[in-house]
Design a protein around this nucleic acid. Structure first.
Lengths: 191, 191
DNA sequence: GTCTATATCTAGATAGAC
DNA sequence: GTCTATCTAGATATAGAC
């Protein structure tokens, strides 16, 4: 008798595969191999490959938003933290699992499609809430555009390994919360 | 004896499939069905599925750049035309075949990877050349960022069917070439 | 919960007739 | 250049023993 593989481990590996190979390109066989299971054993934990999508995105959303500073207390801090987390993830992996899935899931997998939509709407809403606290107008459109710019910049990481467009997108995003700090400069901005 | 299916028709249908389903999701069987051939017959026209990628992107690049106004004569006109073409294509199809392939091809298909890299570098260079003619600095980074913003905006078309982020990205891009014309306003800008 | 074994389907690609 | 027929490999998913 072996001890069960933690669900979280499976989801984390599934995310890696979806991010790298997309929905179609990721296989249950590869996933099983990565977590040390036989492919068939995955189906006792998840009903289908499609079901993994919502698990992956729920985990990603949770990691992105957990312990975020309260926007009503210090919206600039919340904004910087959220943008920093998104950018760090994109830079670490060179691509966004959400974007890969957004392009990769079709109407053949409606639950997965819905999960992707919920994911990005949730991220946008979190950003919108912060910008609204900062009286940045219009908050929803600015949030959508900011996220689109960060995601779009991954094009250059994926094709050229060039992360400078992402750095500039981050800079523009942070600029919304006031002047960007230079190196070594420790600005104390009003909350 | 039937008459041969034009190569161009096959490439155009392949593009449709790659754009919608990505590299992995697109199948030679579907492609054959769309052009009225048996799957096996495709291999007398193209050596492999991978080889279709460069054909698709070469055609797309050609359509994007053919007959573009000379940047040295009127760079604003060239810029508006190119941005307009890119935006129109993205809006018509709701997604970019190049971005889907950028995310979708792996090191398992190195020729396809190279084709994607060449495609985006070529688009960037065309944009860079125009911006340089307009003395917009820095031209290369501005071109990369502009393209990234347009591509990133397709996220919202793909997930929500919302093309307003793309419209705003276009507006920002056109703003680089001077004030944006209002509806009905027929500005004559200096070349 | 994991395993072996298997079912079912579809993928990309090849051989040879016409 | 297109066809019929076939190969080989891989995919998702299920059944039943331990």
């Amino acid at each position: 008798m072996r001890e069960p593989v933690p669900l979280r481990d499976i989801v984390i590996e599934a995310r890696e595969l979806f991010r790298e190979y997309g929905y179609e390109g990721a296989s249950m066989r590869d996933l099983a191999g990565r977590v040390g299971l036989r492919p068939q054993s995955l189906y006792t934990r998840f009903p289908s490959k499609e079901a993994l999508v919502s698990e992956v995105l729920a985990l990603t959303l949770e990691e992105m938003l957990e312990g975020l500073p309260d926007p009503d207390r210090n919206w600039r801090n919340a904004w910087r933290t959220l943008i920093g987390r998104i950018a760090q993830t994109l830079e670490n992996h060179g691509r966004c699992v959400g974007l890969h899935l957004a392009y990769g899931v079709t109407s053949a997998t409606p639950e997965a499609q819905k999960a992707v939509r919920v994911f990005f709407k949730s991220v946008q809403e979190a950003m919108t809430r912060i910008l609204r606290s900062g009286k940045i107008a219009p908050p929803a459109a600015t949030a959508a555009d900011t996220l689109a710019q960060l995601e779009g910049a991954t094009l250059w990481i994926a094709t050229e390994g060039d992360n400078r467009p992402l750095k500039r997108a981050v800079r523009r995003a942070l600029h919304l919360a006031g002047p960007v700090r230079r190196c070594g400069e420790k600005a104390e901005l009003p909350s």
